[in-house]
Amino acid sequence: MTRSESCRTILQSIPFARFLNVSMELAGNELTLKLPFDDKLIGNPVLPALHGGVIGAFMEMAAMTQLSVNENYSHLPKPINVSVQYLRSGKALDTFARAHLNRVGRSIANVEVIAWQDNKNLPIATLQSHFLLNM
């Protein structure tokens, strides 16, 4: 199984990722996740805007899958804490996320994620997180 296939398998195995209909693209070892727009993801029907919680959840998923791409864990990494900064409201568009592994230690990883929509230079949110790894 190629790295891309195994990564897709991991993503497909997570019920919540299927619920959000998240898909992925792997370029070398760099993973981009896509959250296709869906009416059910709306948090503010007036604007309309994506629910902040969906954006946070999606970025957390990006961090987790990027960790799984780089290392072969017997179990999915568990979030210890996440901190989300909301920069712009999420429009009724597809959203993308890419994670950067700042440090992967023996048991803890520090991961940053950015999420964007139509312009990567105008991110809608960023996330800093720590994960517990058990290999």
């Binding site: 619920f19 959000l20 919680g53 969906v54 946070g56 959840a57 957390e60 999915l76 996440v82």
Partner: peptide
Amino acid sequence: RDDLVGDPQSGVLAGGVLTAMLDH
């Protein structure tokens, strides 16, 4: 709900479900 699970091995709800609930 089964479709909100984040870890298929344990059946634990996804962290992202908590994110949305806590945010709201």
